[in-house]
Simulated assay, not measured.
Amino acid sequence: MSSADLVLLVLIVLSLAFDFTNGFHDAANAIASAVSTKALSLRGALVLAGIMNLAGALAGTGVAVTVAKGVISTPTHGVTVVIAAVLGAITWNLITWYFGLPSSSSHALIGGLVGAALASATTVQWGGVVEKVVLPMVISPAVGFILGYLVMTGMLWLFRSADAHRVSRGMRRAQILSAASLAFGHGLQDAQKSMGVIVLGLVITGRQTGFDVPFWVIALCALALAAGTYAGGLRIMRTLGRRIFPLTPPYGFAAEISASSVLYLTAFVFAAPISTTHVITSAIMGVGATRRRSAVRWAVAGNIVAGWVLTLPAAAAVAALTYALTRLF
């Protein structure tokens, strides 16, 4: 095995490790509300999320192509730049997981790519970063919040005269479908980021000339994300399921359906790598705000938003430091 092959293999393994950490870091996104409302048992919810993550990961590659060619130019310093980016993202994922902070794995990876590129004097495609990352990062949570508020308002009006216990029982069953829908959207969005990184590595090493995603890359990333999701993320689940707003089945259903809609729209229509974490968190805030403003624990929400803001620069800094260290050896 040549040194180039070995470096590419390291990138592939690290990308799959990132997918795994993405899965257990973000498992709570899809199942926190369903578990907290007792619509699903924890183990059943994890199995469902793992299967639907796998299905979603196999459903498209538009976001992967955006990550592969729309964030940084092909690095002149080779695959080392991309490896440093992935290490930066993994490190930030582990830090935020440890503290139970639902930050964005997607933006950790994008931040890692930008940081490693800047450290290696590789051109950052700032137009693509702003259009495909920064703007969706700001807009998608706002849309999630508004849509969650509107969907919950509509449900409250629709069931205004219905028996509350019957509605709760029906919504608890419906949450199985909405949780599955959200997990599918998570797979559709998040598995594609690692696909894009591996494709970038293949292009850098001359293994392929275009940015099409080979099926073996799709399959490996899908399996890694699904395995990580099944491993679970209980720390973050407590934050999303209880600490922001104490969800009931109708509120959980409304939040999941709203977040799923945003994920599908951005993946299929705009091919933009948005954060599943940002969208479901803002949707939970939106549905909670329909009860009363004080029902949402805004202090907890503020800590989460701080994590969102820190993710891009923090992951970029770790990736830049990692690249600098690799140049010493």
Score class of each variant (00 low, 15 high):
Ala222Cys: 03
Ala315Thr: 14
Val86Gln: 01
Phe211Lys: 00
Ile236Thr: 02
Leu202Tyr: 01
Ala116Met: 12
Gly185Met: 12
Gly252His: 03
Arg173Asp: 12
Asp190Tyr: 07
Phe18Asp: 01
Phe253Lys: 01
Ser120Met: 10
Ala28Trp: 09
Ser275Ala: 07
Thr281Asp: 08
Leu109Met: 15
Ala224Phe: 01
His165Val: 15
Pro249Gln: 00
Ile280Pro: 09
Val143Phe: 03
Ile72Ser: 11
Tyr251Thr: 15
Glu131Met: 12
Thr96Ala: 11
Pro141Ser: 07
Val86Ala: 06
Ser73Phe: 11
Ala191Phe: 00
Ser294Ala: 12
Phe99Leu: 12
Val67Met: 08
Thr122Met: 13
Trp126His: 09
Val296His: 02
Val81Cys: 02
Cys221Gln: 00
Thr248Ala: 15
Leu101Arg: 03
Trp97Ile: 04
Ala317Arg: 01
Thr322Asn: 03
Gly128Met: 04
Ala272Tyr: 03
Val300Ile: 15
Ala315Leu: 11
Ser3Asn: 09
Ala116Cys: 09
Cys221Met: 05
Ser161His: 14
Phe253Pro: 01
Arg43Gly: 00
Ser106Val: 11
Val151Tyr: 01
Arg293Leu: 14
Phe329Asn: 10
Trp97Val: 08
Tyr149Trp: 15
Thr74Cys: 11
Ala267Tyr: 02
Ser181Glu: 02
Ser103Asp: 10
Pro250Glu: 09
Ile244Ser: 07
Ser282Cys: 09
Phe159Trp: 11
Leu263Lys: 13
Ser106Asn: 10
Asp163Lys: 01
Ala39Phe: 07
Pro141Val: 06
Leu58Ser: 05
Leu58Asp: 07
Leu16Pro: 02
Ala301His: 04
Cys221Leu: 02
Leu328Pro: 06
Leu321Asp: 04
Met1Pro: 14
Val143Asn: 08
Ala89Gly: 12
Gln125Gly: 09
Leu9Met: 14
Trp126Ile: 12
Gly154Ala: 15
Leu9Pro: 08
Thr66Ala: 00
Asp26Lys: 10
Arg43Phe: 07
Ala314Tyr: 04
Val197Ser: 05
Ala39Arg: 11
Leu312Arg: 13
Leu328Asn: 06
Ala39Gln: 08
Ser104Cys: 10
Gly70Thr: 03
Gly128Thr: 02
Ser275Met: 02
Ser106Arg: 07
Ser258Ala: 15
Ala324Lys: 15
Ile72Pro: 04
Val296Ala: 05
Gly154Lys: 06
Ala84Met: 04
Pro102Glu: 06
Ile139Thr: 11
